[in-house]
Design a binder for these strands. Structure first.
Lengths: 138, 138
DNA sequence: CTGCTTGCAAAAAATTTGCATTACT
DNA sequence: AGTAATGCAAATTTTTTGCAAGCAG
């Protein structure tokens, strides 16, 4: 979903598209990494200097509510965000570099649902993070 | 491992066992839930009124370093802690009540290792959290 | 004794909020 | 016009830290 289509969808959902929200939306759409609130603030400021950090936070909350983005809270670091348009995936975090690699496994998805069912629960969402180091030797 | 054995092991590792650390250790050993720093402070205060919240935090850091406890950082809530003596397990969090249920699945453990290997990584640790709601009707 | 630990209060870091003003729709 | 959204500064929340005094080994 492009930034423009997103804006239309959000407007239809009753969300006002302000100059600053537009800038934040574009910033998120352009990001191919997983920026935190402050990084988004820096980047969006370049497009639209009137954005404030408060607005970034407020906008992120709205977007999360509307299901447009996902909030990722890794180990004791500030929350990071990613657009929710790509299919669900999990994350592998490189402990040495901090790199975040996305992956997806149907098998794991299925297993999780099974386990939750056994415990008497329906999964609303889940979070799987593998923290590791690059293998020595290829 | 009992609180007493833990103290001996820690002492051997060069950690001084003070009155307040002893109280925190006992509190952790007795807890069958996953308390956060503040809850631990409250409980430990009953055993040993001289503990301060700072000391709880400092002690938790030491214990984490020594591998005695695990720090669990769930969704935007303060960090929770659990003793590290039990075998590894993952967590299912009840979105309505905040309850934390422990579970373990060999299949998932194995799958994770496989996936990491494919990505060229060795897993150092991982975190799997299922967030869900109790199933309607039994 | 020596220096690791403590309590206290202040500092940090991340995020949220009150309020008067601005600007979508 | 009417109301949601904004910026700013101040408030919260969780955790860390500086410093003088205390206590374990």
């Amino acid at each position: 979903m492009s930034a423009g289509e997103l804006e239309d969808a959000l407007r239809d959902a009753g969300v006002r598209i302000t100059r600053q929200r537009s800038a934040i939306l574009r910033t998120l759409a352009d990001a191919d990494d997983h920026p935190d609130a402050n990084e988004l603030f820096q980047r969006a400021s370049e497009i639209e200097p009137t954005v404030s950090l408060s607005t970034v936070y407020r906008t992120l909350s709205v977007l999360e509510d509307k299901g447009v983005i996902l909030r990722l809270s890794f180990e004791g670091a500030p929350a990071r965000f990613e657009t929710a348009d790509s299919p669900h995936h999990d994350h592998m975090i490189d402990l040495e570099t901090g790199d975040v690699i996305e992956f997806r496994s149907e098998k794991i998805e299925r297993l999780q649902a099974e386990i939750a069912a056994e415990l008497g629960y329906d999964i609303v969402y889940h979070k799987l993070e593998l923290y590791g180091r690059k293998k020595k030797r290829a």
